[in-house]
């Protein structure tokens, strides 16, 4: 597979993640979509690492960092979801409109 096809797979995965993040009302589904998007980014980085970069450690470390950040993000996101659930007894993204103008 060429670099372009990897990138296209990454873009497709990102778009799927975007659909997931935008279409669902459940915050957990939104989180899943976001995870997909992050993984799409990881795939891109790995593909570039393989085909473009001379020092292949760079991309791998980047992806490791993304994984680490994703873990941190999920931890925070989940605690927020719990907090919201406790406050609203719901995790419907459409009902969280306190910031509405």
């Amino acid at each position: 597979m060429t670099l372009e096809s990897y990138l296209l797979v990454g873009a497709a995965l990102f778009s799927l993640g975007l659909i997931g993040a935008l279409s669902h009302r459940n915050l957990i589904a939104v989180l899943i979509g976001i995870e997909l998007m992050m993984n799409a980014a990881s795939l891109n980085l790995m593909a570039f690492n393989r085909f473009v970069v001379t020092d292949p450690t760079t991309g791998q470390i980047f992806v490791l960092i993304i994984i680490g950040l994703a873990a941190a993000e999920v931890a925070i996101f989940l605690s927020i979801i719990l907090r919201i659930y406790r406050a609203y007894h719901d995790i419907d993204a459409e009902k969280l409109t306190k910031l509405s103008g």
Binding site: L18, A21, V30, A93, E94, L96, T97, L99, S100, G101
Partner: peptide, 18 residues
Amino acid sequence: KSTRIQGGWMQLYLGWAI
């Protein structure tokens, strides 16, 4: 009128941002 854009519906924000 434009506060409707600012509906607090974050998925819309995200979509537009993308």
